[in-house]
Amino acid sequence: MPEQTIRSRAALGGHPLHPMMIHFPVAALFGLVASDLGYLLSGDPFWARASLWLAGVGAFGGWLASIAGLVDLFSVRRIRRLVTGWCHAILAVMMLSLASLNWLQRYLAAEQILPWGLYLSLLTALLIVLAAWLGGRLVYEHAVGVDVES
């Protein structure tokens, strides 16, 4: 653990907003993979509607959560100097772009999930795993948003 923590500027009561806000979009985008598989296996239109909503919650919620992350990236010099921070941000933008494309595709052609919707869902889930790993490195190796003095 580093000797000194890096405080978040996008925080409430000292608690960084980005890690608090990202859980629901991540859960929605992982749930999207499951609902796509449900549609693939059953052909039930319920799963197509569920996928549309999960894609929307994941994409729009992810962009909202990314605002807090970008505030920290651009306003905290010590975070800007971390290659891990930039890699995390770039992967997150790539992932959110794919998630947004996935939602838009579903919105415009509601029940045409296969095959591209499923491919985009799986690729998005993979990028989430990589971005989350880098986010964990920011917390555990660089103490971004961690109060080590308590």
Rank of each mutant, 00 (worst) to 15 (best):
I113W: 05
G136E: 00
R81V: 09
L29T: 13
L98I: 14
F60E: 05
H18P: 11
L64K: 03
I90P: 05
D44P: 09
L114S: 12
A48G: 08
M20K: 13
R80G: 14
L40S: 08
I113D: 11
L64H: 02
D72Y: 06
S121V: 03
G85V: 13
A11K: 12
A125Y: 01
M94I: 15
D147H: 12
S35W: 00
L134V: 06
L64D: 02
A10P: 10
H15C: 06
L41W: 11
L82T: 09
R77G: 03
G69S: 07
P16M: 07
G58R: 04
R81M: 11
A48E: 01
R80C: 02
V57A: 10
L82Y: 13
W86V: 12
N102V: 03
F74W: 12
V129C: 10
S42Y: 02
I22Q: 06
D147R: 15
L98G: 10
I128Y: 00
W116L: 15
V129P: 00
R49I: 08
A110E: 14
A48C: 04
M20V: 13
Y107Q: 11
S51I: 01
A110M: 10
G58F: 01
I128V: 13
S75A: 13
L32W: 00
A143W: 08
F46H: 02
D36H: 13
L12M: 11
W47G: 09
D44W: 03
V76W: 02
M94Y: 08
V146Q: 12
L91G: 15
P16N: 09
L91Q: 08
A48M: 01
Y119G: 10
S75V: 07
G85A: 15
L138G: 02
Y119W: 10
S75T: 15
N102C: 05
L101N: 07
E111P: 08
S35K: 01
T5Q: 13
H15W: 05
Q112C: 04
A59T: 10
G43T: 08
L138W: 03
G56S: 02
E111N: 14
L52A: 12
S66N: 10
V76D: 01
A99D: 06
D72W: 04
L12K: 08
E149P: 00
G85M: 11
A55G: 05
L17H: 07
E149D: 13
L54T: 07
S121K: 05
R78W: 00
H88L: 12
A55I: 05
Q4R: 15
V93L: 13
V76K: 00
I90D: 06
Y107H: 12
S150D: 11
A89E: 01
C87L: 14
A50W: 01
A55R: 06
Q4I: 14
S42W: 01
P19V: 07
V76S: 01
Y39G: 14
V71E: 07
S66F: 08
A34W: 03
L29R: 08
T84W: 08
L138K: 04
W133L: 12
I128Q: 02
L134Q: 09
A110I: 10
S8C: 11
A92S: 15
V144S: 04
F24L: 15
